[in-house]
C-alpha cells in the first residue's frame, strides 16, 4: 500500500544542510490506521509529505500501491495525488470560498460536471455532519467544523489514502475525539488507509492499529500499537506511553513497601481475555499466599484491554512458586522486580 524504502531527506538552505530523515523504512498496509508519533522537529511532517511527494526523497524510494512515485512524470504524479487525500493542522481552507466551494475544488480540478459536483459535495457534507453549512464561509465555523470541511474536501476525489498532519493538534480534547471518531468511521466505511502524524499519544491510543515512533529523523520503534504500548523499549517511547498510561507506583506507596525476606514483588500483565477473568481471586483461593496490590491500571488499546498490576506476594517459597506458575499458565505475564530495583514502574 504505502512503503518507504531506506528514505533519506536532506534540506539544504544557504549552504547549511539539515538531515531531516535518516534511513526510514515504513510499510503501511491497506486498511491500516497508521500513526507516526514524535516530538517537534523529529521529521514527522517531512515523512508524511513524502507519501504524496510534496517533498522528494534525497535518497530511497516511496511506493504507493506498488508504484515508485519517483518514476512518475509530473502529470502522472498529479494523477496519483488525486488518490491521496490530505488534511492539515491549520485546515488550509480557502477563506474566500464558501464551504460548498471548498469541498467542490478537487472535483472542479477533475473537471466533473456541475450536477455531479453538487450531488457529491452535499453527500460529503452530510457524511461529515455539516449538511447545513454548505453556504457558510470558513471564518464562520469552529475549528472542529473547519477540520470536517477539510476532511470532506480530502475525500471528494474518492482517495484510497488519507494523510493527516497534526490534524487535531489545534483542537480541544473533546473536538479532537469527535474528529478521531470521524476518521475511524472513514477508515471502516470506505476502507481508506489512514496515516496520522501526531505528538499526542492519546491520538495513537484512540484510533491507530500501528505506530511508528520517530526521533531525530529515525524511526526508533514501530509495530502494532498493542505491542508498542505494552512493551515500549526506547526511553522516548516510554515517555510517550507514560502520557496516557500511568505506570508507576505512587511515591507514598513506594515508601511503605517493606522488602521482607520471604516476600517478592511482581509485575503482572493481563492482555485481552485474561484481563476480564478473576485470576487473582482464583490464585488467592487456591494457594496459601498473601497478596498485596501495589499498583493497578487498565487501558484499552485497539479494542483490547491491557492490564498492568504490581503485587507483593508473601508466603512459603513453594506456595509462591505454585501461585506464580498458576498465573503464567493463565496467560498472565509475570516479571519479578529485583530487590535492588527501586523503580517499580512498567516500561
Amino acid at each position: 500500500m504505502i512503503e518507504l524504502k531506506d528514505v533519506y531527506k536532506t534540506y539544504t538552505r544557504k549552504g547549511i544542510s539539515n538531515d531531516a530523515l535518516k534511513g526510514i523504512n515504513v510499510k503501511v498496509e491497506k486498511g491500516d490506521i497508521f500513526g507516526v508519533i514524535g516530538y517537534s522537529g523529529a521529521g514527522k511532517s517531512t515523512l508524511i509529505r513524502l507519501v504524496n511527494y510534496l517533498e522528494k526523497p534525497t535518497k530511497g524510494q516511496v511506493f504507493v500501491d506498488g508504484h515508485d512515485l519517483g518514476k512518475y512524470s509530473d502529470k502522472e504524479l498529479r494523477a496519483a495525488k488525486k488518490n491521496i487525500g490530505m488534511i492539515f493542522q491549520h485546515f488550509n481552507l480557502l477563506e474566500s470560498k464558501k464551504v460548498f466551494d471548498n469541498v467542490a475544488i478537487p472535483l472542479i480540478l477533475l473537471k466533473k460536471n456541475k450536477d455531479e459536483i453538487r450531488k457529491r459535495v452535499l453527500e460529503l457534507l452530510e457524511f461529515v455532519g455539516l449538511g447545513d453549512k454548505a453556504g457558510s464561509y470558513p471564518s464562520e465555523l469552529s475549528g472542529g467544523q473547519k477540520q470536517r470541511v477539510g476532511i470532506a474536501r480530502a475525500l471528494a476525489s474518492n482517495p484510497s489514502i488519507l494523510l493527516c498532519d497534526e490534524a487535531t493538534s489545534a483542537l480541544d480534547p473533546q473536538t479532537t475525539r469527535s474528529i478521531l471518531q470521524l476518521l475511524k468511521k472513514i477508515n471502516a466505511e470506505y476502507n481508506i488507509t489512514v496515516m496520522i502524524i501526531t505528538h499526542e499519544m492519546s491520538v495513537i491510543q484512540e484510533i491507530c492499529n500501528k505506530v511508528a515512533v520517530m526521533e531525530e529523523g529515525r524511526i526508533i520503534e514501530q509495530g502494532s500499537v498493542l505491542e508498542v504500548f505494552g512493551h515500549p523499549q526506547h526511553p522516548t517511547t516510554q515517555n510517550f506511553v507514560k502520557t496516557v498510561i500511568q505506570n508507576s507506583i505512587t511515591n507514598s506507596m513506594q515508601k511503605s513497601i517493606k522488602r521482607e525476606p520471604g516476600s517478592g514483588i511482581y509485575k503482572l500483565e493481563f492482555v485481552g481475555q485474561c484481563a476480564s477473568e478473576p485470576i487473582l481471586y482464583k490464585m488467592i483461593r487456591s494457594y496459601d499466599v498473601q497478596v498485596n496490590i501495589l499498583f493497578a491500571n487498565m487501558t484499552e488499546i485497539e479494542e483490547t484491554t491491557l492490564g498492568k498490576v504490581i503485587i507483593q506476594l508473601k508466603g512459603d517459597t513453594a506456595e509462591v512458586n505454585k501461585a506464580l506458575s498458576f498465573l503464567k499458565n493463565s496467560g498472565v505475564g509475570v516479571e519479578e522486580v529485583e530487590k535492588h530495583d527501586v523503580n517499580y514502574s512498567y516500561n
Binding site: L54, R78, A80, K81, I84, F88, H90, N92, L93
Partner: peptide, 11 residues
C-alpha cells in the same frame, strides 16, 4: 498552507 493543499490535490 493553501498552496500546499492545492499541490496535495494535484492541481
Amino acid at each position: 498552507g493553501i498552496l500546499e493543499a492545492a499541490e496535495a490535490m494535484g492541481a
